[in-house]
Design a protein around this nucleic acid. Sequence first.
DNA 1: GCATGATCATGC
DNA 2: GCATGATCATGC
Length: 448
Amino acid sequence: MTDRPSFADEEAVLRRARSLVGKTLRELYGAVPEVSGKGGFGTLLESLHFGLAPSTESAPDFGEAGLELKATGLVRERDGWKAKERLVLNVINYERLVEEEEFTTSSFYRKNRRILLVLYEHQSDTKPADLRVLAVGVVDLERLDPAFALMVEQDWRAIRDAVRAGRAHLLSESDTFLLAACPKGSKAGKELRKQPNGPPAQQRAFSFKPAFVSVLARAVLDQQAAAREHIVEDPSELVRRRFEEVVLGRLNAYSGMTVEEIRRLVDPDMTLSGKARFADLTRRMLGVRSRRIVEFDAAGIEVRTVRVEGSGRVRESASFPAFRMRELVRQSWRDSDLRNQLTRRLLFVFLVGPKDAPRFSHAAFWSLTEEDLEEARRVWVETVRRIRQGRVRGLPKKSFSSLVHVRPHGRNSLDVDEAPDGQKVTKQCFWLDSSYLAKVYAATKPVP
DNA sequence: GCATGATCATGC
DNA sequence: GCATGATCATGC
C-alpha cells in the first residue's frame, strides 16, 4: 500500500506542477533532506512537492489523472535546449512482456501513456534541491506527432520480439529509434533477471532516447524548431512497415542508378554543385529538401554520404561538427559531444565510382560497437590531454588511430578557435576514418 | 597513393 | 554570418 495524496483530476495535478516553474525545491521548501546522485531531483520532487511515497507500482503515479511523473535535466546548447540524458521509464518484466500482444494494453503503455514532464536546468556540482525548474507539461503518446507514436510502438514491438526470441541479454540501445531498452541497475551485468526463452539478462528499463527527450522537451517549452520536414508524410505507412524499412526502401529504390539519373527523377531543377551535392541529392531521394528532418532529429540519426572508389577504397573521411577547445576540455568522455555523435545511429549512403558520375550503391544503418567507442575514447582523451598541454597544433592525426582523428574544419585558415591558453588555430573537428568507412561499406554491401 | 591542411556551396 | 557536409590541394 502506498500513501497517495489524491489529486482529483489532471487540472489539480497540473496546478500543483505549475507552481514549480522558475523555482528550486529549496526556495519552496527551505531545509530539505540531503539526497545525491542520479534521480535525486526526481525523488525530492515526488516526496516534497507531490507527497508521493516511493513506488514501483505498475499504475501511473497519479492514478485518477492518469499521469506518470518524470523529471529530466536540460542543458542549453547553441541552438536550443537539449536533454542531458535518456528518460528512464518502467523496468521491463521480461516474463510479462513476452505475453503482451497489443501495444495499447501493454504495461508500458498503461504506465507511460501520459507523462507529466518536469524540466529543470541541469547544473553540474549543484545539489538536486537547488536545480531550477524551467517548465512543466504533459507528454501524451496519443497526442504526439503521429509518426512518433507509431515509431514508439514499433520500437516496443522490436524489444518485445527480441525478448520472445530469448535475446533479452543482447538488447542494445542502438537497436531502436525512439524507445530503447536501457541497462538499469548498479553495475553492468550485476542485476540479472530471468527471461523466459534465454539466459538470465541484465535488468533493463524502457527509456526514451536522448534525442527524443530533447524533442519532447522543446515541445513542452514551445520551442519547436521551424522549417522541418517529415520523412513519413502519411503515418499510416508506418502501420505496414517499420521506419527503417521505409527509409531504406526509399533510398534503395535508386540502387544502381547514376547520380545524374537520380537527379532527373527526384528534382530536375537541382544542380549537382558544391561539395555537399551528394548529401543534397540524398535528401531529395528521401523526399525532403531541408537539412532538418523531424524523424531523424527525434531518433538522433546522422546521415553521411560516402563515395567509394571502384576498388572499394574510400578516399575521404567523414567530418563531425567543429569543436571549441575551451568547451571540449570541460567535458567528460561520458558527456562529450563526440561520444554523443558516435552513439547515434548512423545512416550511410554509399556511392560507387568516379567523382563526376558515381552510382548509388546502397544505404544502411550502422552503429559503432563498444570496442569502437573505446578506441574513440582513447583518441578523445589524448586530444583533451594535448589541448591542456598547449599542444594544439599537434592533436591526434590520422596516424594516431584508424577510427577517429582530428583535422581542421573551418571556412578557411582564418576561421580560428582559441585554446584555453589563448593560442589560435584553425577550427578543428573529429573525423571518422576513411578506412573505417570502407569497412562499413564492405560489411553492408548487398551480395549480388 | 596517402596524410594532412585548406576550402567550397548551401541552408539555417 | 556562420555551421555544415563534404571535397579539394599540396607535398612527400
